[in-house]
Simulated assay, not measured.
Amino acid sequence: MIKERPLTEADEQLVRAAEEVIEKQYRFGKHHIGAAVRTSNGDIFTAVHLEANVGRIAVCAEAVVIGKAISEGAHEFDAIVAVAHPHPHEDIDHCWVVAPCGMCRELISDYGDNIDVILPYKGNVKKCNVMELLPEKYGSSD
């Protein structure tokens, strides 16, 4: 069960960072999801997903941003969010928060079981602990 919590100003800043990176780097057919991760010391990293003609080899923005943060020396994470950018043919004029896919839920939890995930929930944007999105995680020792 998800114990949803409202967003803080720091969480809103994280959402804006994800929106900014995808608004700047959006490319139809290449990049339409942006992500931002906040480290436990408050640093924010951003990245976009990598689309591929063969869907199986596409790389989610959450994975890219975690890899980017780790490559820069960050190893402890506090919160993560992903946002989608509208395509030119869509009648939408703003980005929106999206929930992580199952593989990203696994990946995020591999890098910290106390990471908050910002996601749409019951018509609002909320946050919850990643383990609430992945009950009975594979490989869990509990």
Rank of each mutant, 00 (worst) to 15 (best):
A82W: 00
R105Q: 14
Y121E: 06
H32K: 05
F45T: 00
D116C: 12
L107P: 02
E106Y: 15
S109T: 10
H94P: 04
C95G: 05
P100R: 06
A99Q: 12
V97L: 07
N41E: 10
V117E: 01
S40C: 14
I57R: 07
R56V: 15
A82V: 07
V117L: 07
D93M: 06
E62N: 15
R105C: 11
L119C: 13
P88I: 06
C60P: 09
P88H: 09
H32G: 03
H32M: 12
V59Y: 03
C128S: 07
M103V: 14
S40P: 02
F77S: 01
W96F: 12
S141N: 14
Y121H: 15
I57T: 07
I118Y: 00
E51C: 11
K122H: 13
S141Y: 12
E90S: 08
E51V: 05
P100Q: 08
H87I: 06
A35M: 11
E132L: 13
A99C: 14
E106F: 10
A63F: 03
E136W: 10
D43C: 04
H31V: 05
I44G: 00
D110T: 12
T39Y: 09
P120V: 05
Y138P: 06
V125P: 02
E72N: 15
L133A: 02
E72C: 12
Y111T: 01
M131G: 03
N124W: 07
V130Q: 03
G67V: 02
F77I: 02
I57K: 04
N129D: 10
P120K: 13
A61S: 15
I80T: 01
V97Y: 02
I92Q: 12
G42E: 05
V64T: 08
C95N: 11
S140F: 05
V48M: 01
H94Y: 12
A52C: 11
E72L: 15
I115C: 03
S141P: 10
K137T: 10
R105I: 14
H31Q: 13
G112D: 05
S71A: 14
